[in-house]
């Protein structure tokens, strides 16, 4: 028996919206500690890692660890049937081949339930080492979304460089080029707008804007986003959901661009 209840169905909806364009099918691994999902996009360029801790749910029960293979698009369709303030309960009995979604309005006068067929998904789990990153940037997620949305109109790839002056996003396209630089700021009036740049070593890497743009769909999940970079390692874009868990994206750097620079 697996049973998990969230007061805010909207949170689950936002998570699905953030990853369904990147990954079609994925396994939700449910065990005592929580629900985890790890999946790569079709081109194997990026990796999504979602963790929802058990204590983040209002009710969480797993008798035996289970792997729920779900088509994210179908799940997203079901989640769209939830009202904004509804709570959601997901459950599955051990032998069943479907998972049930139960939506309840706050006043408990409306209930809807949907069953989603589970799939057998052959997925590879990757070992993600706890790497030391050369540079870490924390900024408002809306800011990152805006930068990426602005730059994606200009070119395919963005060069992210962290130096003493701050973090710089540079794009070069056929029509022209552009760059955005963010400097360290403490956000005296609004701490939520602060930009923290932590640099152990200067880093400069190129990434596909297409993927960054998809990652930024997770902005509604968290007001803040962390970006971590290392030379010769994937970029980490992490949206921490307070008390619940995190949604992290890893993106392989573009190699070709580095050669061109030299």
């Amino acid at each position: 028996m697996f049973e998990a209840r969230f007061t805010e169905a909207s949170l689950l909806k936002k998570i699905l919206d953030a990853i369904k364009d990147l990954v079609q099918d994925a396994n939700f691994e449910c065990n005592e500690s929580g629900v985890a999902l790890q999946a790569m996009d079709n081109a194997h360029v990026s990796l999504v890692s979602l963790l929802l801790r058990g204590e983040g749910f209002d009710l969480y029960r797993v008798d035996k660890p289970e792997s729920l293979g779900i088509n994210l698009n179908s799940m997203s369709k079901i989640m769209r049937c939830a009202g904004n303030n509804d709570s959601v309960t997901m459950d599955k009995v051990e032998s069943a081949d479907t998972v049930r979604f139960l939506f309840e309005s706050p006043s408990a006068d409306r209930m809807s339930e949907f069953h989603l067929k589970l799939m057998d998904i052959d997925s590879e789990t990757l070992e993600i080492p706890e790497a030391m990153y050369h540079a870490e940037v924390e900024l408002p997620s809306a800011e990152l979304r805006r930068i990426v949305a602005d730059l994606v109109t200009m070119g395919d790839s963005v060069r992210v460089s962290v130096s003493k002056e701050g973090v710089r996003f540079t794009v070069k396209g056929d029509e022209g080029s552009g760059s955005v630089i963010l400097r360290q700021s403490t956000g005296v009036d609004k701490p939520e707008d602060a930009i923290h740049v932590l640099m152990n070593e200067p880093v400069e890497q190129s990434f596909a804007l297409k993927y960054l743009n998809l990652f930024c769909k997770a902005a509604p999940l968290s007001a803040r986003v962390q970006i971590k970079l290392s030379r010769d390692a994937p970029l980490l874009v992490n949206y921490a959901m307070s008390n619940v868990g995190h949604l992290a994206f890893y993106l392989a750097p573009k190699i070709g661009d580095e050669e061109d620079e030299q």
């Binding site: 360029v45 990757l126 070992e127 395919d156 990434f207 596909a208 994937p234 392989a252 573009k254």
Partner: peptide, 20 residues
């Protein structure tokens, strides 16, 4: 011109598959 079509590298170059 660009020497190579800019191509994003695979994430599998960085993370190793975990045996199930």
């Amino acid at each position: 011109e660009q020497l190579k079509p800019a191509k994003a590298d695979s994430i599998l170059h960085f993370f190793l598959r975990k045996e199930q």
